[in-house]
């Protein structure tokens, strides 16, 4: 039970990861065409995303590619923080 709530707390929109943190995509929420496009660019469920930096426009590494997303797009991506 406690581990369950622990997990929930670790689930955040990609925009809330700090630079250098990694997360595993667990859901895409919002406008469906945007979600489909994000999946095609590699932000598919279970993909591992590393946030490299950026404020308004997020730079992240996914599937071996560096991708820039502005916060409106990055807000569609929900990730679970992972260590390391």
């Amino acid at each position: 039970m406690s581990s369950e709530s622990q997990n929930r707390a670790d689930r955040v929109p990609l925009t809330q990861l700090l630079a250098g943190e990694k997360g595993r995509v667990y859901d895409l929420k919002g406008e469906s065409t945007v979600c489909a496009r994000l999946r095609e660019m590699g932000f598919c469920e279970t993909a591992i995303v590393e946030k490299v930096g950026g404020g308004y426009t997020v730079l992240c590494q996914v599937c071996g590619t560096r991708i820039a997303l502005n916060s409106r797009a990055a807000d569609h991506i929900l990730v679970e923080k992972i260590e390391g």
């Binding site: 660019m41 820039a68 997303l69 502005n70 409106r72 797009a73």
Partner: peptide, 9 residues
């Protein structure tokens, strides 16, 4: 609606 940016570096 304001547009989104998704661009490969």
């Amino acid at each position: 609606t304001p547009s989104m940016m998704m661009m490969e570096m």
